[in-house]
Design a protein around this nucleic acid. Structure first.
Lengths: 352, 352
DNA sequence: AACCTTTTGAGGTACGTACCTCAAATTTTC
DNA sequence: GAAAATTTGAGGTACGTACCTCAAAAGGTT
C-alpha cells in the first residue's frame, strides 16, 4: 500500500526543468534542445522514474481496438480459439482493450487482401491475422502497417523477413517433435508412416513436414515416412486416398496428421485401419483429440496453447501500439506435448 | 482510440441515484438501503458498466507489495525462478506492483513458521511461499491469512483443503506422465527402473512417486520400479546408494529423478552407469537438464514453466488483494514434456 | 543593441474513480 | 406528528499524466 514511485513532478525537479519540459521530452514533442533532452533522460535514469501507464492512458483517454481476423470456417481448433478470445474480451476490458472477432476469411488470397485493405486506423488499432501466407496478403499487410495499424500473424506464420510479429510455434520444430515421438513410440519396429494434411499449400504444413522428415530419416532408419496425403477437407477424397494408402502399404506402423484440424483424417483412419495398433500423432488440443488421447487412440498431440496464443497476440499488439518492446520470454509460444497423463483431466486440490 | 465505456456518472444516471450513492455501492460502504443497492446493481448489468481499475488504483494510490519467500539454498531451478521474478519486477512495476525476493527459508518448519509469523499487512500485501507442507507452516499460514495477508503456495503444494491457491502442477499427474514416458520409451524391454529423489518427506515427491507407480505397475508389466533412493542432496551418499543399486540390479533399464533439482543424481548416474543406454527422465528445465536433453543423455524432462509460475503467483495474489476472481484458465500450470526437439533452441523467424 | 527565433516555464483543464464532509431528504420510532 | 435515525445528494479534493495556451527567458543574427 505504501511504496511510492517518483512522478513527473519529481522528475522535473531532479532534472532542473519545468513540468512542461518533462512532458515535452517524455512525449517526444519538438522544441527542446538536445542538451535539455539529455538532462531529462539522465534524471530518469538517476531517480528511476517509471511512467505510470495507467495514469497516462487515463489522461489520454486511450483505448485499444483490436480485431482477430479468422477463417470463416474451421473445426474445433478454431472454435477453441474463439472461446479463448471471448475470455480475453472480458479480462482485457478492464484495460480499455476492446477485442473483436471477425470470422470472415475465406481461402482466397484476394478476398483476404480485400478485407485487409478496408481496415483503417480510424476504427482499428491492431489486427491479429490468421491466414496463410501469400503475396497478396503480404502486400496488403505491408500497406496496412504503413497506414499505422499494427499487425501480428496468428498461428499461420508469415515466412521470411516481414516486420510482423509471429504468434505461434516454430513449425519445423513442431514437426521434428512429432517425428521424434513417432520414432520413439514405434520402439524399433520396421514400417511406414502415413502422413496426412489438409493441404500442403500452407507454409506451416510444409515446415512441419520438413521437421518431421529430418528427424525420421535422420534418426529412425527403420521407418519410412510416406508422401503427404492431402485431404482438402473433403470426406470422400480423404476416405479414398487413405484407403489407397493402406492397400498399397500393408506395413504402416504409424500415422502423423499434421494439420490443425485432425478430426476428419483420424476418423477415416480409425475406420479403415486400427488406431490402437498404430502409433498416432496429431496436432492441437481439441475436444476430439483430447478424447482420442483418453481412449488411447492417439499416442500424443503436439499443441500450442490457444489461450496463450490469444493473450500473447493481444499483448503484442498493445505493446506495438504503445511503441513498447514486449516481454519476449512471456510471448514465446511453446510446443506442448500432450499425452493422456498430462491433459489435466483430473480433479485437483485448490482454493475453496 | 474511440470506444467509450460507461463511467460512474453514467451509472448514477442510469440507476437514478447520485454519484455518492454509486460510490457507496461500488465500494461496499454502509448506509445504503438494499433496495438502492439492487437498483444500482441492476443498472450495472443493464448498461454494462465496468469499473476502470486503472483509474481506481490511481485514485486510491493503491500499490501491491508482494514477497516471494524462497529456500535459502537450491540449485538451478531455484535460480531460474529468481531470474523470472527479476523479469516480473520490471514488467509489473508499471502496474504499481512491487515484488521482493526473500531467499531465507531453511528446511526447518519452525524457522519457516517464524518468518511467516513476522509478516504483517503493514509492509506486505501478499506472499508466494515455496516451502514443504508441515503443520507448523500450515498454522502460520492460517494466521497470516487471518491478518489479511494473501498467500499462495508456490510449486511445493499444500495438501488437503486449505484456502490457499496452489501455483504449480498436479504432481500425481506429473509422476504419471513420467511413468508413461519411461514405459513407452523402453519399448517393451524388460527390467528395473531406478527412482531417485532428494527426499521423500515432501508432499510433491510422494505424489510424483505415486503417479509414477500407478502407471508403471498398471501399464508396463515388463518394468519394475525400484524403491525410491533418497539423496538428501549429499554427494557422497548419492554416490554410495546409486552404486549400490547398480550393483544389486544389473537389469536397470531406466531412471527417474523426481526432485526439482536433478543435477547431482544425474551426474552420479552418468558416472556409474551409462546414461545413453538407459531411458532417463527428470523434472524441471534448467541449464543442466537442457544440455542433457541436447546431448541425448536425458530422454525427456517434465517441467513447469517458471516464468508462468511467477506471473501466475503475482496475478493470483493481486486478484485476491482486490477480492477479484482470477481467470482460471490462465492460471493453470501445465505439465510440460520437453524433449530435444521442442526446447526452442533454434533460431526462428520473427520481427525485425 | 535591436530584432527575431527558439526554448522554457507557469498555469490551467481533463481523464475516471476514491474518499471526504455537510446538509437535505426520507424513513423509522415512540 | 414530532423527534431521532437512517439514507441520500451535492460538492469538493486528490491521484499521475497528457495536452493546451500564453508569456517569459534565452539564444542567435545583424
Amino acid at each position: 500500500m505504501a511504496e511510492v514511485r517518483p512522478t513527473t513532478k519529481d522528475l522535473a525537479k531532479a532534472a532542473g526543468v519545468s513540468l512542461a519540459t518533462v512532458d515535452r521530452v517524455l512525449n517526444g514533442r519538438s522544441g527542446v534542445r538536445q542538451k535539455t533532452v539529455d538532462a531529462v533522460n539522465e534524471a530518469i535514469e538517476r531517480i528511476g522514474f517509471i511512467r505510470n501507464i495507467s495514469a497516462a492512458n487515463l489522461a489520454r483517454g486511450r483505448s485499444y481496438r483490436l480485431d482477430f481476423l479468422l477463417p470463416r470456417s474451421g473445426d474445433q481448433f478454431l472454435e477453441s480459439l474463439v472461446d479463448r478470445i471471448a475470455e480475453a474480451q472480458v479480462a482485457f476490458a478492464a484495460d480499455s482493450t476492446f477485442v473483436r472477432v471477425r470470422k470472415e476469411l475465406q481461402g482466397d488470397p484476394h478476398q483476404i487482401a480485400g478485407i485487409l485493405s478496408r481496415i483503417t486506423p480510424e476504427d482499428t488499432d491492431g489486427v491479429a491475422l490468421m491466414a496463410p501466407d501469400s503475396p497478396q496478403v503480404r502486400d496488403a499487410t505491408t500497406r496496412l502497417l504503413e497506414r499505422g495499424v499494427k499487425v501480428v500473424a496468428l498461428v499461420a506464420g508469415h515466412a521470411g523477413e516481414h516486420p510482423v510479429d509471429v504468434v505461434g510455434v516454430d513449425n519445423i520444430a513442431a514437426g521434428a517433435t512429432a517425428g521424434q515421438l513417432v520414432g520413439r513410440f514405434c520402439g524399433g519396429r520396421q514400417g511406414k508412416i502415413l502422413v496426412v494434411s489438409d493441404t500442403m499449400n500452407a507454409q506451416d504444413s510444409v515446415e512441419r513436414r520438413h521437421g518431421f522428415d529430418s528427424v525420421v530419416t535422420g534418426r529412425f532408419p527403420n521407418l519410412v515416412a510416406l508422401p503427404t496425403l492431402e485431404s482438402y477437407g473433403d470426406e470422400a477424397r480423404t476416405r479414398a486416398i487413405i484407403a489407397n494408402a493402406f492397400r498399397n502399404h500393408p506395413d504402416i506402423v504409424g500415422t502423423y496428421v499434421l494439420s490443425s484440424e485432425a478430426r476428419l483424417a483420424l476418423e477415416v483412419i480409425g475406420e479403415l485401419g486400427s488406431l490402437s495398433d498404430l502409433v498416432n500423432i496429431a496436432h492441437e488440443r481439441t475436444r476430439f483429440t483430447e478424447e482420442m488421447l483418453m481412449r488411447g487412440a492417439l499416442d500424443a498431440v503436439i499443441a500450442q496453447n490457444p489461450g496463450h496464443l490469444v493473450r500473447s497476440a493481444i499483448r503484442l499488439l498493445r505493446a506495438r501500439c504503445d511503441m513498447r518492446e514486449p516481454l519476449a520470454s512471456q510471448e514465446e509460444i511453446r510446443i506442448e506435448i500432450l499425452i493422456r497423463e498430462n491433459l489435466g483431466k483430473v480433479a485437483r486440490a485448490g482454493r475453496a
